[in-house]
C-alpha cells in the first residue's frame, strides 16, 4: 500500500482497479472511524460507501498537503455530518437489526484491530462523547498526527491537543473504574 495516492491517480486516469484498491485498503479503517461518529453500524457502512462514491462521481483533486488517508477521512467525516443532519429523526431499529449491527461491529473490530488489547480499548471508547471517540480513534488506531487529526475534524491543532488531553483523562477514568490500566494513557 503506497498511501493510496498512486491508486487514486490511476483511477483518475481511467483505471477502475485503482478505486477497487482504495476500497480494499481503506474501507475498514474508514468504517471504524465513521462508526465512532454515527454509533450505528449500518449508517456508518452507508456513509463509507458514499464517501467512495463521491470520489468516483466528483473525482475531487487530492491535496498533497496531508496524507491520502487524512483527506479521505475528512471527506468521510463531512459525509457523516451531512447524513446525521439529514437523518436527525432516524427510524428505530428492530431487535434483529441491532443484534446484526453488534455482530458486524465485533467482526470489524476483530478483522481491523486484530489485537485484543486494542479491541478492549476501542470498546471502552464507545461510552465517550463523539469528539473524544474520534480524536482517540484517529490518534491511537490510525496513528495520525495532531495536525492530521485537526484537518480531518476541522479543528485547530490547539483544540485537538486539548481534546486529546481531555479524552485521555475521561477514558482513563472509565478504564480505571472497570479495573483496567492502560499504560499509554
Amino acid at each position: 500500500m503506497d498511501n493510496g495516492v498512486s491508486s487514486y491517480r490511476r483511477f483518475l486516469d481511467g483505471d477502475e482497479s485503482g478505486m477497487a484498491e482504495l476500497i480494499r485498503d481503506y474501507k475498514d479503517g474508514l468504517l471504524m472511524y465513521l462508526l465512532g461518529i454515527t454509533r450505528d453500524f449500518h449508517t456508518a457502512e452507508e456513509i463509507m460507501e458514499d464517501t467512495f462514491v463521491k470520489l468516483v462521481v466528483k473525482r475531487p483533486r487530492y491535496s498533497e498537503k496531508y496524507s491520502f488517508k487524512t483527506w479521505l477521512y475528512t471527506i468521510g467525516r463531512n459525509a457523516a455530518i451531512d447524513c446525521l443532519r439529514r437523518n436527525s429523526k432516524r427510524a428505530d431499529s428492530t431487535v434483529e437489526e441491532l443484534a446484526e449491527s453488534l455482530a458486524d461491529e465485533e467482526n470489524l473490530e476483530l478483522s481491523y484491530l486484530k489485537e485484543e488489547r486494542k479491541i478492549a480499548l476501542h470498546k471502552a471508547m464507545e461510552t465517550l462523547n463523539p469528539d473524544y471517540r474520534q480524536v482517540l480513534y484517529l490518534s491511537f488506531f490510525e496513528d495520525m498526527s495532531n495536525a492530521e487529526i485537526a484537518a480531518v475534524m476541522h479543528k485547530s491543532k490547539r483544540q485537538i491537543e486539548v481534546l486529546i488531553y481531555r479524552a485521555k483523562i475521561s477514558l482513563k477514568s472509565k478504564l480505571e473504574k472497570e479495573g483496567f490500566i492502560y499504560e499509554e494513557l
Partner: peptide, 20 residues
Amino acid sequence: MKNYEEVTKNVFRKSEELIA
C-alpha cells in the same frame, strides 16, 4: 458486514446511478 467485493460493487453501482 459487507466484504470488499460487495462494497466495490456497490460503490460502482451507486456511482453509475448517480452519474445517470
